[in-house]
């Protein structure tokens, strides 16, 4: 809940609503990206960026190399699995393609 996990923004779901698809070690879900949008920028600029995701919200942009390294460490100590399992089991918010709860 407090640790968060790095993921990569792969698509914008709804620019106006500030929702994007984030890939966390192969698991995808819709994440709120309002807090990492450049003021005055468009959400498209976020595609490809790595972010730190806390409970479904991207709260910080991270450098790509650093993100990968963090994931490796989290994976090595088993920390990532817990977070990824939680994301996998989570409820996909509409309007993204929905997954049965």
């Amino acid at each position: 809940m407090c640790l968060g996990i790095p993921g990569r923004i792969v698509a914008i779901v709804d620019a106006a609503a500030g929702l994007a698809t984030v890939d966390v070690s192969g698991v995808r879900r819709t994440v709120d990206v309002q807090c990492v949008a450049e003021p005055g920028g468009t959400p498209d600029q976020l595609v490809g960026r790595w972010v730190l995701v806390h409970v479904g919200f991207a709260l910080s942009i991270i450098d790509e190399e650093e993100a990968r390294a963090t994931l490796e460490v989290l994976a090595a100590i088993g920390e990532a699995e817990v977070e990824i399992a939680a994301i996998r089991a989570s409820i996909e918010p509409s309007p993204a393609p929905s997954v049965a709860p």
Binding site: D32, V55, S90, I91
Partner: peptide
């Protein structure tokens, strides 16, 4: 149990 408050909001929609 939910992963995100957004999931709770989704439950409210459903």
């Amino acid at each position: 149990m939910v992963y995100s408050p957004l999931d709770a909001l989704e439950l409210a929609r459903r």
